[in-house]
């Protein structure tokens, strides 16, 4: 393989009691790739993502992130990943800058680095005007941009985005995906879960999860050809129908 695999997953199983949330998942993600992780609610997307971030321990299987083993080296993994959860992990009673400062500090950045980089990024994200506003007073779409800025601030090699665009208007969603593409262009790997099928078209490769099993994996074009469907939306319906039978 030419490109280095940032994420390697082999036969990953996660059970909660009798319930199998992840059923023998096997996939890998390459450096700089935008990897879409699709599936209906409860398909096991968030569980798999939490395992990759070191928040959950797998029941069995091999999982490597940046070459580190999730069972034994989760502390090393944590240093080089960014994570943006479904709920926006920002503090409402802190200002934009204080939120950035806090998270950057816990990732070990120096005060000088933080101030310089914040200025550059806030300009780039067009958020400079709200630098000293309390996050609680800011509209949702902007909060998401801030959360994304924070998740990528410490230059992680992989960023995990768990349904980053839930509840946001289409224009902000488009802008958000532009940010994602820009990050990928600079070499960051992006692992994105979503249930908006139009967003799947923006991904380099897409995997579809159904009831804990990986049922499809490939580029959006490959999948459309394979299922003879005009859009990812159709692909998803066909797969879902098969799963029901």
């Amino acid at each position: 393989m030419l490109k280095k695999n940032v994420i390697e997953v082999k036969d990953l199983v996660k059970k909660f009691g009798d319930f199998v949330a992840n059923d023998h998942l096997t996939f890998s993600v390459q450096k700089g790739e935008i990897f879409g992780f699709l599936g209906a609610n409860g398909a096991g997307k968030t569980t798999a993502m939490k395992i990759l971030c070191g928040l959950l321990t797998p029941t069995s299987g091999e999982v490597y992130v940046n070459g580190y083993n999730v069972y034994t080296q989760s502390e090393l993994i944590k240093k080089n990943i960014g994570y943006m959860s479904q709920k926006f992990s920002l503090y409402d009673d802190l200002t934009t800058f204080e939120n950035i400062q806090f998270f950057a500090t816990i990732y070990g950045l120096s005060k000088k680095q933080i101030i310089e980089k914040t200025t550059i990024l806030l300009e780039e994200f067009k958020l400079y005007d709200i630098k000293n506003h309390l996050v609680g007073d800011i509209p949702l779409g902007w909060k998401q941009k801030i959360a994304f800025l924070i998740a990528t601030f410490h230059n992680p090699s992989v960023v995990f985005l768990d349904e980053p665009t839930g509840g946001v208007d289409p224009i902000t969603r488009r802008q958000f995906w532009e940010l994602i593409h820009r990050a990928a262009a600079s070499g960051t790997t992006l692992f994105v879960t979503t249930h908006y099928m139009d967003e799947a078209e923006y991904c380099d490769r897409v995997s579809i999860l159904s009831e804990g099993k990986l049922v499809a994996l490939g580029t959006p074009d490959d999948l459309k050809n394979q299922y003879k469907a005009p859009s990812m939306d159709e692909v998803f319906y066909k797969i879902a129908r098969n799963a029901d039978v």
Partner: peptide, 12 residues
């Protein structure tokens, strides 16, 4: 608020 997750995935 979900910030605990963000703290737990951090090196903290």
């Amino acid at each position: 608020t979900g910030t605990m997750e963000a703290l737990l995935v951090s090196p903290l």
